[in-house]
Design a protein around this nucleic acid. Sequence first.
DNA 1: TTTTGAGTTGTTCGA
DNA 2: GTCGAACAACTCAAA
Length: 403
Amino acid sequence: MDLIIRKGLTSKVVDILIEQSGASSVYWNRRYEIENIETDTEIMSDLKKRGISVKSFNANLLSEPWSIKTKTGNYYKVFTPYWREAKKHIKTEPLPSPKNALNYVKKLESLEINNLNLVPKNSNWVNKMYPHWTIGSKGALQALSNFANGPINNYGENRNKPAIDDGTSKLSPHLAFGEISPRQIWSFFKDNLEVADKFLTEIGWREFSYVLLYNNPKLANENFKEKFNTFSWHNSESSLNAWKTGNTGYPFVDAGMRQLWKTGWQHNRVRMVTASFLIKHLLIDWREGEKWFHDTLVDADPASNASGWQWVAGSGADASPYFRIFNPFSQGEKFDPEGEYIKKYIPELKELPKKYIHRPWEAPLEILQKANVKLGENYPRPLVDHKFARKRALEAYANLNTT
DNA sequence: TTTTGAGTTGTTCGA
DNA sequence: GTCGAACAACTCAAA
């Protein structure tokens, strides 16, 4: 059986395929963004009217977002009780493979994937990403097995250290593109649920994010908590650009933003720090960060990305408390004590001793000179003072409750 | 209906 | 250097 690739308006393409193949049934896997739900619902009802059998399935999630409910029948808005309940409903046994392979009556015409211009030709940024990822389900299964054969055992600790390359599973892009399903992952660990618990909880967050997105289709655009609608975000194109390009003057933040630009991915621990910096140190609207991450991440997921940004902003369900403002250099000192992560993505700082690598602005001039660091020239000074920014954010968030 | 306990990942300050 | 408390008030979920 071959994969048939077609291009065009979904409803039309499906019609043409039905006609060409003589199909009497159409099956697909469900999607959860509002536009896709609408498209799929429309096509489903149209096909049914014409006597064609239609079935849709869940291949993307462990549980359908509408299936896990509180005692009063509402969807969960707090992760911990959600996950406690959701875990009870997970079926660990995958379905058996079909007995008979599907056969087409005749061979159908297909577009060539290489002719679709899916990958930009006249740019070098895309080539930089290939070494970091093996695209496709083979790459996904390989990543899963590599992770299960070792790193999972130290996941609780190593997942917070961005310099450790295999501290996390790196499965996110494979999940985002459907190259692996969460049920395959669950089933893989079904005899070691205890060992994998911390990791599987992260899969749980992905599930929970889909519950939030399904029940709040505008999760990426509108504050989950309405009181945030009056928050007056700062509008600074130059600060936003400094953040995007990794030029805030805080090495841990900048390393993260440069990792994102270079590899299409950013370590989870660092995502929290860079997001917190944009929102709380710069007071820039979380939606700006959400958009940038959505554009640049190879694992960009409409549910996880939106709910993650709202969580950091404090505007989301079960959100991070207002006083949780990450310190952009002490996070680095804590989770990258040797500065290896910094050196990897900011080579300009690689000669700096670790004592100063997370806060070069405090280094004596002679040490900076010896390390060939010229603040304001080959590496920026801090965009904002941490103490000042922290106080300013706390006041802005306090205002939220009194207005 | 009311009550109760809890809520991913932090930082700072002062004893 | 270590440790506990404070940093607000609110909403959620279950008993």
